[in-house]
Nucleic acid binder design. Structure first.
Lengths: 223, 223
DNA sequence: TTGTTACGTTACGGTCAGGATCGTAAAAGA
DNA sequence: TCTTTTACGATCCTGACCGTAACGTAACAA
């Protein structure tokens, strides 16, 4: 999916084997130009004509590959999405803190933060786009988060009846809320305080990687 | 604020006392048409020309009152914002559950839900609009939520060092996250489970307005 | 070669925001 | 009553920008 069933085919899979093949170089040039431009002007300010100009390519060449501006942007963002924290061996608390930190980074240090608002608007008007976005961007991340929670449950760090989705939403929701709605910067403490919140409700004694101790802070380090 | 310093003045306060006064009826007609149209086609689908047509008014008449489409929409949404739950005498838990329920209602049963995505995109590109939105829509709500938390602290239901903003974000964030990003409907249980989460971390013994009855469990309150 | 497809160039069609003009209507002040 | 000021409708216009359509040419496959 994400492929066929549409006029312009996807970069990798050209429509037919006959005729002149697409220049694969162009795919990259266009995506790179898109990323660079998104970082500068955000989603709303991005125009396909300017992307084409920067990529040294014609506008129809762009539309041959991506039917809509919004699809181009989603695929460009996908290229930016490589997980940069490993999870699995440090206990739920540490894993979740790392994932939250990664999300904050993704939204504040890559163009995704500048792109998200515009993309949210398009998604609301274009269900197909929303599906792609959720599948390609949200989905993979959500699976990693869920896996971390699941491991916590399996290890007995979290109680057996923990509502996995509720935990994921409780941790990720406020981050998006800050970026999209309030505009207030996310506190550097957030990964820690958010995880504390969840552990207070769903944690077990085993899971205590540290005393529920004083709220204000904890000696603990990130690492 | 929100007033002067701009060509088109606001409905109530005309620019000058001389000359033909604005027809106040028109203000309402335009706002009503805006609300109705937003409910049908959402923010992106809304055009000023169509608003004018439905209101039985000319397009310039709209632009005399609101300099931009986005400002018109914000003010139209403000007219939809009347608190419909009272808070204050039932304990923090009940108050917060009511506020969450009200927010979910607002986003799912008024046009605000259809408007928010588009507005979020505009806000990202227009700081002045973002400021109005936060002041007129987010602000008043946030104050009510904070007040509820503050009362909880004052009554000893919440611990004295509770981070008020963190609590508000933790409760409201996931709601926006669901509406804007995942698109998944918000669970009917959410008001209850979310408040339980917060109480597990920040609640005190006094605050038990009901047995942790275990929706699922958790006997305890932390500390 | 012949057919098929990609490419650049150029030119459109269409939609919409936001502004300008102009003639007219409604008010305030002299 | 006359003048000034502003609102109003109707109409037109500019400027973006999305997304397509032609057309001629280049690069492949059979």
């Amino acid at each position: 999916m994400t492929e066929q069933a549409r006029g312009p085919r996807r970069p990798g899979g050209h429509g037919s084997d006959r005729g002149r093949p697409r220049d694969p170089e162009m795919d990259r040039m266009i995506l790179d130009a898109t990323i660079a431009l998104l970082a500068e002007v955000g989603y709303v300010g991005l125009t396909v004509a300017e992307v084409a100009r920067r990529a040294g390519v014609s506008k129809p060449a762009v539309y041959r590959r991506w039917a809509q501006k919004s699809q181009l942007v989603v695929e460009a963002m996908v290229t930016q999405m490589r997980p940069d924290v490993a999870t699995g061996d440090r206990g739920v608390a540490e894993d979740l803190r790392a994932l939250i930190g990664e999300l904050i980074d993704l939204l504040s240090r890559t163009p995704l933060g500048r792109v998200l608002p515009g993309l949210v608007a398009e998604m609301a008007a274009d269900p197909a786009l929303a599906a792609s976005y959720r599948e390609l961007i949200i989905g993979p991340n959500q699976r990693r988060w869920r896996a971390a929670v699941d491991r916590g449950i399996a290890r007995g760090e979290l109680s057996a009846d923990t509502d996995v989705d509720a935990v994921v939403n409780a941790l990720a929701g406020p981050v998006y809320f800050g970026v999209l709605i309030t505009g207030e910067p996310i506190s550097a403490d957030y990964p820690r305080t958010a995880v504390d919140l969840v552990l207070a409700r769903y944690g077990t004694q085993d899971g205590q990687d540290r005393p529920p101790s004083s709220p204000t802070h904890t000696e603990e380090v990130r690492e």
